[in-house]
Amino acid sequence: MTADGSLVLDGGLAPSPDCRAAVPAEPASASEQAERQRAAWMAAAQAGDRRAYERVLADSVALIRAVARRQGVATDALDDVVQETLLTVHRVRHTYDPARSYDAWLAAIASRRAIDALRSHGRRERRELHDEFALDRHPGRDDASADAERRQQARRLREAIAQLPPGQREAVEQLGLREQSLAEAAAHTGRKAGALKVNLHRALKALRGRLHGED
């Protein structure tokens, strides 16, 4: 058992900064130093340091992309995984323990989000295949039925938007439907532009899930 009460099962991960500080004989490599820096930034972010937080998130993008690529995520979907991971990091940032590896913590979250992306991509592909098959069987679809389908889709979208939490619904209505700028929407709703943008991200994710059954 280690001093922090954990077993050595996690021995494969990077040692704690304290341990490394106690062994000055071998100079830390550039990547180790960079990781130590990220750990320190995240610890500061947990205390509310915005600059440190933005730095650690910006520094995390390359690592998230590398993890997603390793999992087999296509290049055009990498930024989706990056953004989903950043949103999750924001929500669970209290679970990071600065005595442990930041990169291992981040990679675990990124890996999970990459798997989610692969699964949802697989589901979408199956559905599209199915739709094509349906189209082949009904090649003479008239305009009336296409209209009815569009109306049905619009109704489903309206219902899904209505079910969103108030903050997210507001963001979709102001930014998505009324096409207001962030500044206009912020002035209109009295919310910060940043909060509106995060709410829009979350709303779009929830809508994708509801309309395509991705959750």
Binding site: D4, G5, S6, A45, Q46, A47, G48, R50, Y53, E54, L57, A58, V61, D76, A77, D79, D80, V82, Q83, L86, L87, H90, R93, H94, T95, Y96, D97, K192, A193, G194, A195, K197, V198, H201
Partner: peptide, 27 residues
Amino acid sequence: MAEPRSNDSLIAALGAELVPVRRLLPP
């Protein structure tokens, strides 16, 4: 596809939303 610029704006938005958090107690 999300653009890299959009990563930056998300990071800025998350930064604007940042509040101090109470760290999870050890397992």
